[in-house]
């Protein structure tokens, strides 16, 4: 079996027309895990806590203190969202590091792969020498140039079928190593930002983007709009890039030297998982804070005058 690297998550099933990818499956597992752990921790709440309750209390209480240092008085409003962002991303990152994720899977015949190519989801199998992260060149045929790969997809399918080749599709893939997931989180975060802004400041919040007071503020408003849209992209790609890069690094290392050597990198990825969860949730909190305190200086000045 060759080294398996795919930028996109692979489709493993279809549910009422919706493609189910391996990342989506892992997302569901992460959700179930979080819910089960929460239920276990808070099933029997007592004034003198048991072990599970104590751990849950330290985590939730610690997060609350941590985020309240950034959010200040708005913490009550933000906490459920940012804490969920943190916990969900953290667990998703760590579940992606479990043994079996990315290695347990099944093989697909060429015919199946042709279907997959027709869909946006792709299955890729690459030779170690030509490990490529290109959807349009899932199979690197000897002597084939990368530019030609896209055009020769159909021919390649036939070729593979003729040779009776099989493609490996992992059953699980880190939930956050899929842009659908990270983009969804980024959208939630940026939309929540606007929601918090409007909820706290009312119509006044709109002046953050559309402001005719003076030309400078008008320009600033357009910049704010652009920055908020770019936040979606930066959130999504930061998380995806970090986790996907870690997966690739571990996969390559495991492929080259399967024993001992990947361990330090595995620890590093554990750390990266925490850092990325923290970065995502902290940045969200900071942005929420900016949104709800928009125009505070002006108000203060007006009150002062």
């Amino acid at each position: 079996m060759g080294l398996h690297i795919s930028l996109a998550a692979e489709q493993i099933a279809t549910f009422y027309g919706m493609p189910i990818t391996n990342s989506y499956l892992t997302t569901l597992i992460v959700m179930v895990l979080l819910i089960v752990l929460s239920v276990m921790a808070t099933r029997k709440m007592t004034m003198i806590p048991g072990n599970a309750q104590l751990i849950a209390e330290s985590i939730v209480g610690g997060l609350y203190d941590f985020f309240s240092a950034i959010a200040g008085k708005h913490i009550k409003q933000f906490f459920p969202l940012v804490a969920t962002l943190f916990l969900f991303i953290l667990v998703a990152n760590w579940v992606g590091l479990l043994p079996g994720v990315g290695t347990i899977g099944f093989t697909e015949t060429a015919e199946a792969k042709e279907v997959a190519v027709a869909e946006p989801e792709t299955v890729s199998e690459t030779a170690p020498a030509a490990a490529k992260v290109d959807d349009h060149a899932p199979v690197a045929v000897d002597g084939e140039k990368p530019e030609e790969a896209g055009t020769s997809a159909a021919a390649e399918g036939e070729e593979a079928g003729a040779h009776g080749e099989t493609k490996f599709v992992p059953l699980f893939r880190a939930a956050t190593a899929d842009l659908n997931m990270t983009l969804a989180l980024a959208l939630v975060s940026v939309i929540a930002m606007q929601y918090f802004g409007f909820r706290t400041l009312g119509a006044h919040y709109a002046s953050r983007f559309v402001n005719f007071k003076d030309p400078i503020m008008f320009g600033v408003g357009i910049l704010e709009l652009a920055s908020d849209i770019s936040k979606v992209v930066s959130f999504a790609f930061r998380l995806f890039g970090n986790i996907f890069a870690g997966e690739v690094l571990l996969a390559v290392l495991a492929f080259l030297i399967p024993f001992i050597v990947p361990l330090p990198f595995l620890f590093m990825e554990l750390f990266v998982g925490v850092v990325q969860a923290l970065v995502f949730s902290m940045l969200s909190t900071a942005f929420f804070n900016v949104a709800v305190s928009h125009g505070e200086e002006e108000h203060a000045e007006a009150a002062h005058a």
Binding site: L7, A8, A9, M18, P120, E121, T122, D134, D135, N180
Partner: peptide, 10 residues
């Protein structure tokens, strides 16, 4: 397509 972004999945 290259990034595997699928509106329904999103």
């Amino acid at each position: 397509d290259k990034l595997g972004i699928e509106p329904t999945l999103l």
